[in-house]
Design a protein around this nucleic acid. Structure first.
Lengths: 247, 247
DNA sequence: CTGCAAATGTGTAAAATTTACACAAAGTAG
DNA sequence: CTACTTTGTGTAAATTTTACACATTTGCAG
C-alpha cells in the first residue's frame, strides 16, 4: 500500500455533488439486476441452483438466477421475488454480498448486478418453472459460468464459508429437526474439511443453543441419533463482543 | 427462521429471466451512485469526513461524500474518483460494503447507492474542494446524517471494526513509520476498547509482520518508542486457513 | 545536575481453550 | 445371535490467552 500525495487532482472538473431530480431521471444508461446464489444441502453435499444461460454468447454455460430490479421494487425484494418464483419458499435466509458493476460484464448493455446468496432446505421445496434445465449442482463442479457469474459464485461461496463459522446460518440448510451428525456433515461440506466428531459435539453443546427434542432419527440402518433444533431466540439475546486481533 | 413450503407461488407472472438489449436500455428509472465513508485517524481518535448536505430537505445535516456513477465508469472507479477529488490521494484502501436501494431513500428519485469505506492517512493529505464545510468529525459524534447516510455509516463502521481484527487494514490509517503505542491507540480507537499493552505487543510480535526500522520516535516528551512498518509482502505469502466455529 | 513525570520494554504463572484420541452401547440386517 | 455401523461419552497434553509489575529511557523543571 503506497501513498501518493497529489496536489494536482482535477479539482476543476468537480461539480457540486448534489443529485437533483432532473439528473436522476436523465441517467438512463445503467440497469440494475440481482443475481442469487441459492445453496442447498443434499446427500451430504453442498449444492447450488443453476440454469442454462439463454444468451447465445454463453450457449451451454450455466448461470445464476437473476432478474432486473423493477423501478418500484426494493433490491432485497427483487431477490426474494426470484427465490419465491423458483423455489416456492418464503422467509428464506438471504444475504447481500457484493455489487458487480464492471462496464462490460453484460453483453446486453450496462447492467450492474447486486449479488445475494440464499440458503434453502432442499427437502422443504419443489422447484418451480423448470425451464432451461434448472437444477441443483454440486458446488465442487461449478466452473466456467456465464457472464461474470463464476466470480459472483466464488465470492458468495467464500462469504458463506466465513459466515457460517460465526453465525448460525447453517441450520437454514437442514431440516427443522436434525442430528448432530447431519450438522457436522453440513459443516464439513461447506468448509471442505474433516472435523473431529467428539470435539465438534463438545463445541456445539458448550454454545448451548441446541434444544434436545427427545426424539431420535428414524429409518437409519444403525443406532439412531438424537434430534435437535436450534434455539434462535436464545441466540438473539446473547451479546458476545469479540475482540481477537489475528491475521 | 421459519419455513413455509408454498405450492401457490405466482408462477404465472414469471417471464423468462433473460435480459435483452432493449430491456436494458428501456430501464431508465434507477440511478446509481456511490457513497464513501472516509475514515482518518488523528490525535488518537477515529474520524470521518463529512460535508453539509445541499438538499433543502436535509438542511443543516451532515452527509457522506458521494456522486452518481457515470454511464461508462466502473463502480469502484467512481468511488476512487470521489476520494481523489476530495483528498488528492491515490491508491487508497477502499472496500465495497453494501448496496442501499430502498425505494424512497433519496428524495430526488430512485437512486441506488453502493457504499464504500476508505482509510486514509490524515498526515499525508490536504483536503480539496472545501465547499459545504467539508471536514473531519469524530466518529463518536456522528448522528442523524442526511438521507439514509446514518445507516450507511453505521454499516461501514461495523464492517471496519470486524475487518480490522482479521486483516491488516489499520496501517493505512497510520504514518508509514509508527510506534507500537500508535498502533495500539489505533485499535483502541477503532474498537472502542482498552487493550493490555504487554499482550498487544506480544500478539503483534508473534504474528511477525512488523519490520523493526531501527529508528525511534522524535519530539515526544518521554522515552521514545521504536518505529516499525508493516511487512505486506510477507503477509501476502502467508496462507492461513482458519476453522473456528463460534457464534 | 538532579529529580520528577511519562511512557517504553520485558516475562511469568494461572486459567482457559483446543486438540488428539478409544471404547462401550444401541440399533439394523442377515 | 452375530456382524456391522454409528452414537455417545471423558481425559490428558498442548496451546493460547489473560492478568499483572518493575526497571529503563527520555524530556523537562528547578
Amino acid at each position: 500500500m503506497t501513498f501518493m500525495p497529489d496536489g494536482n487532482s482535477n479539482s476543476k472538473n468537480v461539480k457540486t455533488l448534489k443529485i437533483v431530480q432532473s439528473e436522476v431521471q436523465s441517467t438512463n444508461k445503467i440497469a440494475l439486476s440481482v443475481d442469487c446464489v441459492i445453496f442447498g444441502f443434499d446427500e451430504n453435499k453442498l449444492k447450488v441452483l443453476l440454469i442454462r444461460s439463454d444468451m447465445k454468447k454463453f450457449q451451454s454455460k450455466w448461470s445464476l438466477l437473476g432478474d432486473l430490479v423493477k423501478p418500484e421494487e426494493d433490491i432485497d425484494s427483487a431477490a426474494y421475488r426470484i427465490l419465491k418464483q423458483r423455489t416456492g419458499l418464503d422467509h428464506l435466509y438471504l444475504e447481500q454480498v457484493h455489487t458487480f458493476g464492471s462496464i462490460n460484464r453484460h453483453p446486453g448493455g450496462r447492467v450492474v448486478s447486486v449479488a445475494y446468496y440464499s440458503l434453502i432446505n432442499i427437502q422443504h421445496h419443489k422447484l418451480k418453472i423448470l425451464d432451461n434445465e434448472l437444477h441443483w449442482h454440486d458446488v465442487d463442479s461449478v466452473t466456467d459460468l456465464a457472464f461474470d457469474h463464476q466470480e459472483i459464485f466464488d465470492t458468495c461461496y467464500t462469504r458463506l464459508q466465513k459466515r457460517v463459522q460465526e453465525h448460525p446460518l447453517g441450520f437454514s440448510l437442514l431440516p427443522n429437526k436434525f442430528s448432530l451428525r447431519e450438522l457436522q456433515n453440513l459443516y464439513e461440506a461447506i468448509l471442505g474439511v474433516k472435523l473431529d466428531r467428539r470435539n465438534f459435539r463438545k463445541k456445539f453443546f458448550a454454545m448451548d443453543f441446541l434444544i434436545d427434542l427427545d426424539e431420535i432419527e428414524e429409518n437409519v440402518p444403525h443406532r439412531p441419533g438424537k434430534l435437535y433444533k436450534f434455539n434462535y431466540s436464545k441466540y438473539e439475546k446473547r451479546n458476545k463482543k469479540w475482540i481477537g486481533i489475528d491475521f
